[in-house]
Design a protein around this nucleic acid. Structure first.
Length: 298
DNA sequence: CACCATGTTCCTTG
DNA sequence: CCAAGGAACATGGT
């Protein structure tokens, strides 16, 4: 679930339900996700703290907390990795199998579960500082984008995954944005023409914006464990809508299906060890000159 | 058993 | 030193 739109939708749902709540206790089931913060540091810092706000930077969640005694605000940084989820559940409900961390909020529990444990919940904010501009910020200007791309020999698809270029685009929306812009994922970043840079900047924004819009209207599964609509937020989809997002994607995971724009079969290719989906019929651009790997002599 | 998976961070190679 | 590529991380679904 976690690219910028999913994180944004999650933040919008979490912010009102977490605001002003006090963290009474912290249960750490998988200390590794706190890295480099220790379990003890987290507990000492968070116990008794008030959640002043929840926001987002790129794919990171930012929890602004206020210390129990000092009242000095500080930030707790979260990242969902590939499979992370965060939601509130009744205190009495059993913790899910892959719970990484859970906050005791008194009348409810805030759970961070992550099947693959690639996520993070930490006091270390250095990753945030390395992020590029937010896609919707004016700092993500055509000039900035063009200049940054001009310096890279990487394929444009791989470059879009670089969080220091622009924050929040992941593997799914990189393919989607390039499809909408009609640009081949294999085109070297530095080879994009000015008008392609302009178009791509626009489609990055529109694709992300559209996804946020869809996500905001997805019916959420309230009180999934108990069937009660008690105001506790559960991040997930109600049954029957599990493919809601996927059905709105134009090329991602659609290898072999006809392109919605020109009918040519969607292709899958691997770049930097990750899948890229694109339409060879209407996504143009010269591809990056193939590097010839010299034969290795044992 | 094989391969695939929404992400980031190391380590190696060039 | 830098850029690029790949493996590792950990678990589950086809």
């Amino acid at each position: 679930m976690p690219e910028l739109p999913e994180v944004e939708v999650l933040v919008r749902h979490l912010a009102p339900v977490l605001a002003n709540r006090i963290i009474r206790d912290v249960e750490v089931r998988r200390a590794k996700i706190l890295r480099p913060t220790s379990e003890r540091q987290i507990r000492d810092r968070l116990r008794g703290a008030r959640i002043a706000g929840v926001s987002r930077r790129g794919k990171y969640l930012l929890f602004t907390l206020e210390g129990a005694r000092t009242k000095a605000p500080f930030q707790l940084v979260g990242h969902l990795g590939m499979t992370g989820r965060m939601y509130l559940q009744p205190s009495a409900a059993p913790l899910p199998k892959h719970t990484a961390v859970a906050f005791d909020l008194g009348d409810a529990r805030f759970v961070f579960e992550d099947t693959r444990y690639f996520g993070r919940l930490t006091l270390d904010t250095t990753a945030i500082a390395a992020l590029g501009p937010e896609p919707f910020d004016e700092a993500f200007s055509v000039d900035y984008f063009a200049t940054a791309l001009r310096r890279s020999a990487q394929s444009i698809k791989v470059k879009l995954l670089d969080q220091s270029l622009v924050a929040g685009v992941g593997n799914i929306y990189a393919s989607e944005a390039l499809f909408c812009a009609g640009i081949s994922p294999r085109l070297a970043a530095r080879r994009l023409a000015r008008e392609q840079v302009e178009r791509l900047r626009e489609t990055i924004r529109s694709v992300l914006d559209e996804a946020i819009g869809l996500g905001s209207t997805v019916p959420l599964n309230w009180g999934a464990e108990t069937g009660e609509r008690n105001g506790l937020f559960y991040y997930g989809l109600t049954s029957g809508t599990s493919r809601y997002y996927e059905e709105r994607l134009r090329v991602y995971d659609r290898a072999g299906e006809p392109c919605v724009r020109c009918g040519v079969s969607i292709q899958r290719l691997v770049q930097a060890a990750r899948s890229t989906y694109y339409c060879p019929g209407c996504q143009t651009g010269r591809r990056v000159t193939a590097k010839i790997k010299p034969a290795k002599i044992s």
